[in-house]
Design a protein around this nucleic acid. Structure first.
Lengths: 227, 227, 227, 227
DNA sequence: GATGAATGAGCGTTCATTCAT
DNA sequence: CATGAATGAACGCTCATTCAT
């Protein structure tokens, strides 16, 4: 028995962790509705009934997975310096999003794909969090746009265009076949900022300077969902 | 194609049409696995057993919906003049895709979202068609890239970036709140070609000249899946 | 195949009949909550899922049993001549109740014992019917009391005293050990009208005259729930 | 019986008391089979596993409740003077029964309603006690009948008629709406002894004299099951 | 062509109960 | 004494599918 202070929920938390990771994987592979609690029981090695000690319904299990994702994303964003140039902040947002996405592909696929599988209170609660998250990017895009041109680009469309580019990744990305993470991020941002046609040549100082200082170590932060 | 008038399959075709439209709507709204054949029976007004005259399994029903989507997309593409400038052809591809997407949102959502709900033979068959469709865009992007810059942009990433931008639409687009179809297409292409930063000011002749000649009539072709 | 007119629901009705009878028996023996649909499936020889063609939930099954009971009781009461002396009408009410009770002991036990097993809409609907039924007797008791004595007896208490005497029967009555139906009714009414002390000697004309004319044939009407 | 003061089972007894009271309430409200041990855990504030220190199975818990009821009833009966007139003793029996019933409605409802929820040894043991209790009243009725008339009234029927009147109370009695306890007992006995028709005017000396001497204080004895 | 009636398999969930601590 | 964690068995119910008519 370890010191009394840190034990009580220790075991519980670890088990829950395992279950969430495991469930996320299966949800990602088979889809939420095609996954039975029995599948999760099998994969975790726990008994069917035993699982229900950790969540009340299958839907709550899905919610827990999604909630931890978005809470982590939001929390990580807090660490970004708000005095940075708006374009740089968009870049950092995307790096945050994609970095987490690629290191927690299962969870993020579940978040992107099983969006509508939540109902009632769970759905509402996730909606609030997701709206908060989307608003961050939307405001940033607005800032960037405000400075440029004659406001020809619709902010909503521009925002979701970026989310679309990023979130679609789970449908096609294969680590072995495709670009490694940092390059992938680089490419996506180039296309998004400068377009397919000019993206190749782009080397604006604000875009490259920052990135040079960072390396893959940055992303190691994402390696496991609960850091 | 036989004479349209008196074929014995006429009745069959019309009913099947209704069923497919109806099923696509429900699949889009509730998801494939959460939709029961009973839901479709209720929505179509047909008896449960009666439906099975038109398809052998629920999965075949999903396949039929998806197959007709992609076949129409491929078939429409055939009409595009291959002598056109590559950039223009990318633009036409996107217009084709988005135009169809927005006029048949249910079917396209089903195609995008229930990608992995098919298994076995059905999955394989769709994969072949989808690969054919993706290859068209990927080749076009390659062509465009070949001419530009020093080939810095990864072709796969660039291709799926565009697909992501477009296919993600079903998660956020509300006709009443967002840009009307032609403008939406315009914006997406601007961002994709010229980037968020330069997209606003872009007015390159090849980009605008063509578009001016077309108008919404183009898209009326898409109004109903089976034209 | 019989004449077209009476067939369509014929088969359905007969099967439902069987199921209701069967379920009433098991509910009576094991109690509603201890009876599983699988028990009923076993007893009827139908498949588990097949049963659900005839009712939507286990609770509806209970409701159907109870509803048919009380509707029959109410309907039978309609045939009683309202010009009869109030005391005689009380007697006829009791005969109706007990006669039906003893010939459909399972259903009546379910009705008496599983009163509170219904919830929501089902409960409300039964409450309405039961109140209607109780009111009949309560009004009769009121009429009888109005004429007699100085109104010393509380109407509600008197009404439910009679119901209690009658409904308690399912807890102790054994056809082989106890009085046959007509005598049982006789005894209960004697006690209720004249009391334990005077009941034995009572031979008031209004009480005996009527009864002499009736015999067991009366009760044969009750032999099966759906007459 | 050990000295009341310091026995090590003191704490046990108090806790058990609480549990039994609590369980009786829930059993009465939701029914035995619909009540889960978790419900009782919640209501008592004890942990699920903790409860099992006080009883071995859920059925034993039910048994304990019922056993204490009937033991108390039997024990109280011991105090009645056997030299009293038989009719008076019937009256005292009913007063005992109803007094206890109304002051411990939950327990009595459980006893009346969950009669058949016990099985095996528990059932047998309760049957013995109940038979002993019933026999007391049945013998009394026999005594009363033996003296009167020509034995026209069946003893079993007469006995259970009285039990039925009394035990049915839990289905309809509302303290606020209905007669207070002493009057209710009065009415029931009047009906039972003299009948609905003559009950109102009855004022036989043996019936009223005794009662005048008692008042509600009698019943205060019953206020809590464990006196 | 169309349907009423039926079914085997499987689902999410709850239950009374246990046991190491 | 008391509890957190776990489990096998069973529950009510729904599903895609079939088949005689």
């Amino acid at each position: 028995m370890a010191t009394r202070s840190d034990t009580p929920t220790r075991h519980y938390d670890e088990k829950l962790e395992t279950i969430l990771k495991c469930a996320a994987k299966i949800f990602a592979e088979k889809g939420f509705h095609s996954t039975s609690i029995r599948d999760i029981s099998r994969a975790t090695g726990m008994s069917l009934a035993g699982l229900y000690y950790y969540f009340r319904t299958k839907e709550e299990l899905l919610f827990l997975i999604q909630e931890r994702c978005i809470l982590t994303l939001l929390q990580r964003w807090e660490t970004v310096n708000p005095d940075e140039d708006a374009r740089v902040r968009v870049r950092l947002f995307a790096e945050n999003h994609l970095g987490f996405f690629l290191h927690n592909m299962h969870e993020m696929k579940v978040m992107a794909h099983e969006d509508e599988s939540l109902t009632g209170k769970f759905q509402e609660q996730m909606l609030v969090l997701k709206r908060r998250y989307v608003k961050i990017l939307m405001d940033l895009i607005g800032e960037v746009q405000g400075r440029e041109s004659g406001r020809v680009i619709d902010i909503r469309a521009a925002t979701f265009a970026l989310f679309g580019m990023m979130n679609w990744i789970y449908t096609w990305y294969h680590p072995k076949r495709d670009l490694p993470l940092p390059q992938l991020i680089e490419q996506m941002l180039r296309i998004y900022f400068f377009g397919l046609l000019k993206g190749g040549e782009s080397a604006e100082p604000w875009f490259t300077a920052e990135a040079a200082e960072r390396d893959d170590v940055t992303f190691s932060l994402w390696r496991n969902l609960p850091d």
